[in-house]
Simulated scan of single mutants.
Amino acid sequence: MTQPARIAAFHAAGQDRFGVVTDGGIVDLTADFADRFTTLRDVVEAGALAELVAAAEGRAPDFAEGEVRFLIPITNPDKILCVGVNFPDRNAEYKDGSAQPKHMSLFPRFPSSFTGHGQPLIRPPENHTLDYEGEVVIVIGKGGRRIKPEDAYDHIAALTLCNEGTIRDWVRHAKFNVTQGKNWDNSGSIGPWLVPFTDAAQLDDARIVTRVNGEVRQDDVLANMMFPIREEIAYISTFTTLKPGDVIATGTPTGAGARFDPPKYLVPGDVVEIEVAGIGTLMNTIADEVL
């Protein structure tokens, strides 16, 4: 299989940068496009991901991967929206006898609640129920309102991955609101990079696997989603205008730590990997917050 193009946001040599990841390292394109783009959101909005990939061809890397700190690919999105309980086995975990819901569950996350590939997810001192949720993320390339499902894929610029880290006890603080459990600083991650979306099979045939310390915890295919990604885009764009650079985390399979007996919450030293063939592997460690 041909290696897909990989476009990353990263910090190196005292500056936030963007470039193309190659087998030998990262080609820094920040200066090449400084007159046009400041962030990858600018690149997505201009429809210029392929232009970045072409500009990196034949060039030697400027940085080794170990010399950079990966950032979340879209550092300044207008919206980050997450789809909850979107696989049948996840729905069955809720012991209320409910069949597939009529409408999807949605909630927002703040950019500050995510960190980049290779960085630690932070467990806060207030609560130690930090959990993982592996998900495929879509990045909107062409904005729109009331997008039809059959047109939805035309609005996707790129794919990436998400560990939608959650402080479980805090999602139970209110009767019907999970926002406070989903937005602890640096509790989740997005990355490692953007892969341009060029073929429906990148989503339709995708399998997502989550491992904790090498043990497979989540393993499912996106074809099993109760609300497919085409429907997610259509439904979300009914009530809000999607903009280039908007991020949608599409839902996680069963197997999160909270569902074990006893629960298997994340602890410092753990290593969590989210993998989808054709996109990559998002890896994070766990660390306690330093006060």
Rank of each mutant, 00 (worst) to 15 (best):
H155S: 04
T115G: 11
V137L: 10
N186G: 12
K148H: 04
I190C: 02
R207L: 02
I190K: 01
V209R: 07
V212M: 12
N186T: 12
G97Q: 08
V195Q: 02
D131L: 01
V212K: 14
D96A: 05
T210H: 00
F197K: 02
L106T: 14
L222W: 10
E150T: 12
R172D: 15
P124K: 00
Y132W: 15
P101F: 12
G134D: 10
P120I: 01
T129G: 10
V171T: 15
I208H: 05
V221G: 09
Y132A: 03
R217E: 03
T210S: 05
L222E: 04
Q202T: 14
C162Y: 01
K182Q: 12
L161P: 02
D169T: 03
R211M: 00
P196D: 00
P196V: 06
P125C: 00
L203Q: 08
N224I: 01
F110Y: 12
V137T: 15
S112D: 13
G181W: 09
R146L: 10
K95T: 05
G134T: 00
I190M: 14
K148S: 06
E133C: 06
I156T: 09
D154A: 15
G191R: 08
R145V: 06
L194F: 06
G144L: 06
N224C: 10
W170Y: 15
N213Q: 08
I147N: 07
E126H: 11
F197T: 02
P125W: 00
A174S: 15
P120F: 07
A152T: 04
G191L: 09
V137P: 04
V178A: 12
W170V: 05
K142D: 04
E126S: 14
P120D: 02
P111Q: 06
R146Q: 13
P111K: 11
L130A: 11
I138W: 10
I140Q: 03
N186F: 13
S187G: 13
L161V: 05
D205V: 08
G134Y: 00
P125Q: 01
G97I: 13
Q180L: 15
I208D: 00
N183H: 09
A99T: 15
A200M: 07
Q202M: 14
I122H: 01
D154S: 14
S98N: 11
V216K: 10
F107V: 02
P196H: 00
T160L: 03
N127Q: 09
A200D: 13
L106A: 08
G188M: 07
S189C: 14
K102I: 11
H173M: 13
R172F: 15
T160S: 02
P149N: 14
W193H: 06
H155C: 03
N127T: 13
P125F: 01
A158G: 03
G144M: 06
G191F: 02
R109H: 09
A201P: 01
P192S: 09
Y94R: 06
D199R: 11
D199W: 10
K142L: 02
N224F: 08
D199G: 13
P192M: 11
P149W: 14
F110G: 05
P111D: 10
Q218G: 03
R146H: 14
K102P: 00
V221I: 12
V137M: 06
D185T: 14
R145W: 00
Q218C: 05
P124V: 07
N224A: 11
V221L: 05
